[in-house]
Structures are given as structure tokens and as C-alpha cells.
Design a protein around this nucleic acid. Structure first.
Lengths: 202, 202
DNA sequence: CACGAATGTAGCCACTGGAAACAATGATGT
DNA sequence: ACATCATTGTTTCCAGTGGCTACATTCGTG
């Protein structure tokens, strides 16, 4: 027997990506804690054990979501830098804003990405993260070469800005800052960073 | 029958605080997600339903932990300000460092505190949070009055620093920054903030 | 000292993630 | 063409969790 009424055939055909799509929606709507494998299976109309063929584990599914998130973040940064003005401050601002937008539009995902990044054994995730963040560190170095930022360990300089942006998005996501203020705060943060981290006047 | 061998009497006597203590340990060791009411009960040697008499809900227990956390954070800030030097930059630095230490030494607790703060219905938590953070906002205003910080909405000025510190502690907690670098980064962040947010030279 | 309020216990339910045994389908080699 | 094997889904079970209700014990107080 194959098709009973309008039922799905025995094989779903694209279960893996169907699960990933549904999972990302659940992640967005209910957060990572509340994401339920069985619920996903129900939603897709498949038995609760079917996802196991594609994700060994709940954590494996979350890791896959995190990896996909880093790829999307990398794309967002790439796009923003490709479209950006040539002046360094503008380029920095655009890249930072792109990150901040991603972070606020994908709050739960980003949280997942952060917690997954340094879990032992998930080698693909740090690679994907590196690919995304490498662009920003390269941008910092560009700023140093152009004389807009003081010299010194680029990571030490940049990490402060990264922390600031990460903090701002956390506050927005937590409701402590209205989302409408995001762009303004990012602009302020970048300006303060550029003032605070510029080379001493000659 | 009362005492069978070395058993605990029927009433524990201090179950509520025993639960809170055990819960904070579990929170520290396994994170909020993995904190299990039944596990706490087992650990304490009490039936799995006993905690219900003191905390209606898993969330109620977590809320109680969060509230206690804000009280302890407030104490830490108070202490650091009481012991601080008189100069504004030193005072700001000490308070910020006290917060950062609390945040890194109680990572899971702080996360819980942040997520609990803006949940509807938990009125005592925002109050406790306000009591703790009010000190820092007062300190910012003090800086403005002393001429060390530009004027304008104190919240807009201060939130950038708060975000930066929050970001730094998140990075430390996430393993992206070695804990040994915390003090140095906090110092850098405060310096950059003071340079970036000082009034324009006359 | 009796009786109601607190506090703890036992047992049930629904749900979850995980694992094993089984069934249907798809792919491959001859 | 077709037998065979790997893939993908299903069923069924288990242990663990949070929450609920009915019951037991103890404490306080009139």
C-alpha cells in the first residue's frame, strides 16, 4: 500500500530540512529550552522517532541550527560590507549594525550560537563562527592600517566594541531597551569606540 | 513514631532555605535548564512533592533565586562603593569591577536574574533589580555633576557602559575571553568610556 | 488537650528524550 | 529484471520531569 487518501508517502522526502525549518520557528517562538523534538515531529506529521535518523540527539539538532546561524550571520556581514561606503567609520558602523540587527532579529538563535560555539566536540561550529567573525577582525585591522584606530593587539581593541554591541543587543532582547533605540545606540557605541580607541594625537 | 534510627524527623524544619541553598548549588553546577526539583528533593532527603509547599512552581523557585541574586548584587555594589576612593574615575571603576566580578562568579545566576527581571507578574524582582542598579545610575549622575561625563540623558550615556560590561562578562562566561583578562578589560572599558563620554573640551 | 493550619508523603498523569525492534522504501550490482 | 542491502520511518518501551490531588503527621493555639 502506498498512498492512503491525501497522506504523505512513507518517506517524507525532505525530513531533515523540514525539521530544521520547523525547529528554527520553534526556537524563535518558544526559545531553545522549550523546543521539543516530539512537537516538531507532530507538527511535520511524522512519528516522534523519525527525527532521530537525521539528528542523533536533541543537542545535535541545536548544533545544526547554530551552525546554520553562523553561516547566515556571515552572509549578512558580507552583504553589509559589500554595500558599505568606502570611509572606515561608515564601514565599521554598517558592519556593526548588520550584526546588531541579526542579533536582535534572531535573539534565541544567537544565544544558541554562543553557547554552542565552545562546546567540546562540535568542530564545525567554531569554524563557521570563525568564518563569520573573521570579517570583523579584518575590518578592525583595516582601521588600524588606515590610522583610524590605535595600534596594539587587534583583538584587545576590537573585543571591547564587540562586547559593547553584544551587550546592547542583549539589553534590547531582554526588553531593557526599546528596539527602536537600537540604531541610535549602535551609532553612539561606534562613535564612542572610535573616539576612545583612536590613536593619540601627535 | 518519631525518630527511626538517625532519620530526619517528619518535618525538616528549614526546608525552604535548604532548597534555596541546594538550588543555588545546582544552578552553579548544571545551569538553570538542568535544575531539577525532584533532584533537589532527593538530595535533601525529602519527598519529591515537599518543595511544592514552599515554591508553587519550578519558576517560583527560580524567581526566588533571582531575587536573592539581586539582593546580593546590591550588597556587592554597596560594599565596593563604600570602600572606593573619592575620585570619580576610581569610584566608577570599582563599582563596575564589582559588578563584573559578580557576573563572572555567578554566571548562571545572572542569566537567570536577567531573564526573570522582565517577566510579567514577578513584581518583587524588578524592585530588587532597581535597588541594585539604582546605585550605578546615581554614580553616573554624580560623574555628570562633577564634570567628568557629558550631560544628556544619564540612561543613554550609562547604558553604553553597562552594555559593554555586560558584553565583557558574557564573553568571559562563554569562554571567549580568559577570566584572567577580566580586570584588564574592565579597566580598558572604563577608560574608553570616560574618554568617549567626557564633555567636549571648552 | 482537641482541633485546625502547616508541612511532608504517596501515587497518579501527561509529557519528554532516548533506545531497540520492526516495516517500508530506495539504490545498487549482476 | 530482480534480489539484496542501506536508508528512512514506525512502534513500543523505559526512565526522568513537573504538576496535581488525596492522605498522613506534626505544630500551634484556643
Amino acid at each position: 500500500m502506498t498512498e492512503t487518501a491525501g497522506q504523505r508517502p512513507y518517506h517524507h522526502g525532505n525530513l531533515r530540512s523540514a525539521i530544521l525549518d520547523a525547529a528554527e520557528r520553534q526556537l524563535r517562538e518558544r526559545g531553545a529550552d522549550q523546543l521539543s523534538l516530539r512537537d516538531l515531529a507532530r507538527e511535520i506529521g511524522v512519528s516522534h522517532a523519525a527525527p532521530r535518523r537525521h539528528f542523533a540527539d536533541r543537542r545535535a539538532l541545536l548544533d545544526a541550527l547554530a551552525e546554520a546561524g553562523f553561516l547566515r550571520l556571515g552572509d549578512a556581514l558580507r552583504t553589509s560590507l559589500a554595500e558599505a561606503d568606502d570611509a572606515f567609520p561608515a564601514r565599521l558602523h554598517d558592519a556593526v549594525l548588520a550584526f546588531a540587527r541579526f542579533a536582535t532579529e534572531n535573539a534565541a538563535l544567537l544565544e544558541l550560537m554562543n553557547s554552542a560555539k565552545h562546546r567540546p566536540g562540535a568542530s564545525r561550529i567554531p569554524e563557521a563562527a570563525e568564518a563569520a567573525f573573521g570579517q570583523v577582525f579584518a575590518l578592525i585591522e583595516e582601521g588600524q592600517e588606515r590610522g583610524a584606530l590605535e595600534h596594539g593587539d587587534p583583538e584587545r581593541i576590537g573585543i571591547i566594541l564587540y562586547a559593547t554591541v553584544q551587550g546592547i543587543t542583549t539589553l534590547v532582547n531582554g526588553g531593557m531597551i526599546a528596539a527602536e533605540r537600537l540604531d541610535g545606540l549602535i551609532a553612539t557605541a561606534v562613535e564612542q569606540f572610535l573616539r576612545g580607541a583612536r590613536p593619540p594625537l601627535p
